[in-house]
Every structure is written in C-alpha cells, then in structure tokens.
C-alpha cells in the first residue's frame, strides 16, 4: 500500500485506510480532518491565498539553523540591509517568523512601531526606502509578553503572516526562522513552497508535492564553528533534504575573533571537527563564506543601527558579507 504520504507522521494508517483520521497517530496531523471526512478535499485554501499574495515576490529565501543563537537574525538583517543598499531600485522584505523570540524589530531599529491592518492586509513597517519588515514583535504589547502557544496556533499565525501581509512588489523576501526542525519550519516550507505552484489539486497536502514547483528559492543555513552547533545544523540540512528544499549554502558565523587590543586572531568557539567547511564537504552543500566574531556587529544588532552604515574601516565582516551576497544573488538569479 503506498497511500501513506511521504511526509506523514510515523504510524500513519494511510489515507485510504479505514482508520484514516481516527488512529492515534493522526492526532495533530494537519490532514486529520480531511482523512476523517472520507471525501477527497480540495486544496488548502491558504495555499492558494499565499500563492496569490506572494506572486509578486521574486525570490523567497528561508534563513534556517538547527541551532539557536548562531546569528540567523543578525545575518538576516545584514542581508536585508546589504541587498537594499546594493539594489536601490529593488524592494526587499523581511518576515520574522520566530514567534517565541522575535528579534528583528530590535535589530532593525523599529521597535515599538505599529503595524496597521487595512482592507488589503497587514502593512509592514518600513525600515528604509526599500526595506520592509513584518514581525510578531509588533503585535505584542510589552517586551515581557511571552507567546506561549502550542504548534497549531503558531502555524495559524505563520499562515496569516504569509497570506495577509501586503508586501507590494518584492524582489527578495527573507524569512527569519526560530531554531529547530519543527512546526514553524514545516509550515513555512509547506506554504511558501506552494506559493509558486500552479496546480495544487490533490487531497493530501504533501509538502514534497508543492515543492516541485520551486516557489522557494532556497534555504540559507547558518552555523557556528563548534561541533555542538554543527550537530544541530546537520539535522537541519537533513530536514531540507527530506523536504526537498534547495540549500543555497551555509554561512559560518562567529568564526574567528580578532582581539581589538593586539590584533591577534583566536578561535572563541573552537572548530574541533573542522568547522562548517568540513561539514559542507561531507554533506555536499556549498559554503558561502565565514563571518568573524565582531563586537561591533553585536552592538549594531542591539542598538538597531545598520552595521553597513557604521562603515567600520577595513571590516572583515563587510568583505565577507559582500562575497556572500554575490553568491546568494547569483544562486537566486540562476533559478529564475
């Protein structure tokens, strides 16, 4: 019997089984109701909505990492600023999908801004002329407010963010994600990928199926050099492989530290196993570059200033960032 979808939960009884939608393994499966109803349902209406909404977005990039605190948000904001500065005529959007710990409003210096809901959807907050941001951080009343939600509620929010933000014409949409390989990720991939597909007419919402249309330009995976982080990042790369998400490449963050006093270089997070370079070779994914561990960058992120505008003389970060941007732009252009 091959009616068990590839992306089904373990112990899925199969979509044609009598237990479909009723077995214990079905609890929490997004298709439980579809299976239980016994009739082949149409496509998830959200897929169509998101597809329409994101039809004006040329390149959609997911920024991922299995590990937390490696610099996903920092890299996303750097990329956003970098792309916006490089292409003054193009529009860049950032979607902060980290619901439990949204960092983008602070990093982009737009904390406390209000987002408005109009007839055409949520209007994002403009950080610059051609850089806009949407984050759950804008919807929380106080910085102490916690979003204590289980998976399904978070998924609803992400679905809303993907389908109801009025981005306008965008050349690049960067999606900043929370750490892990869980609900948010499944849904992000599922919906964004679906957005580029024309025919979405099967009863089972197979992420793999929607991905064949390649609505998603790909994923950018962030890591730090030490094995504890790489261990989680390997899992993330495997996750991308399982869901057929193209990996644009890996960026290694916090690679070397240059002492501001004596200018000597040292490894703060020792790459005992060869760092990201060795991992990329082993798993056959491109390494886009390495960013040094730089106190100024951490300050810029805290204060909400654009690191690019601080123009630190001879900054290794800027040089590395430029090369990373080149590679990302080239990879995106090659798909379109």
């Amino acid at each position: 019997m091959s009616n068990i979808p590839e992306n089904a939960p373990n112990h899925c009884p199969g979509t044609q089984s009598e237990d479909a939608g009723k077995a214990s393994a079905c609890a929490g499966c997004p298709n439980q109701n579809i299976c239980a109803s016994g009739v082949p349902a149409g496509p998830d209406p959200a897929i169509e909505l998101i597809k329409n909404r994101l039809s004006n977005v040329k390149h959609k990039i997911l920024v991922l990492s299995g590990k937390g605190g490696v610099g996903k948000s920092t890299l996303t904001s750097l990329l956003g600023h970098g792309l916006a500065a490089r292409f003054p005529d193009k529009n860049i959007g950032i979607l902060d999908a980290d619901i439990c710990g949204p960092s983008q409003p602070r990093m982009l210096g737009v904390r406390g801004e209000q987002v408005h809901y109009s007839g055409s959807g949520w209007s994002p907050v403009y950080v610059g002329d051609n850089l806009s941001l949407m984050s759950i951080g804008f919807l929380l009343g106080s910085p102490d407010d916690a979003v204590i939600w289980r998976g399904p509620k978070k998924n609803g929010m992400i679905k809303q963010f993907l389908s109801e933000v009025e981005w306008g014409e965008l050349d690049y949409l960067l999606i900043d994600t929370p750490p892990g390989t869980s609900d948010e990720h499944l849904w992000g991939v599922h919906y964004v990928a679906g957005a580029g597909v024309s025919g979405t007419s099967d009863e089972h919402l197979s992420a793999v199926q929607y991905l064949s249309g390649a609505g998603l330009s790909g994923a950018l995976v962030v890591s730090t050099p030490q094995e504890v982080a790489l261990l989680d990042v390997r899992k993330e790369l495997n996750f991308c492989r399982k869901l057929d998400v193209r990996v644009l490449g890996v960026v290694e963050n916090m690679a070397v530290f240059v002492c501001p006093n004596c200018k000597s270089r040292s490894e703060v997070f020792p790459a005992t196993t060869g760092g990201a370079a060795a991992m990329c070779e082993e798993l056959e994914v491109p390494l886009l570059g390495a960013l040094p561990l730089e106190p100024l960058l951490a300050r810029a992120a805290d204060s909400g200033h654009s690191y690019l505008q601080l123009q630190p003389p001879g900054s290794q970060t800027l040089v590395a960032m430029d090369q990373i941007l080149d590679k990302i732009v080239a990879a995106c252009e090659s798909t379109s």
């Binding site: 939960p9 929490g28 869980s182 990720h185």
Partner: peptide
Amino acid sequence: SRNDAVVWRGPKK
C-alpha cells in the same frame, strides 16, 4: 544517525 532530524509537530513531541 547523528545527522537524523526529528521533524515532529507538537503533539508527538
């Protein structure tokens, strides 16, 4: 395998 990912939704976790 150490590369295996646990791709689970909430209820299973």
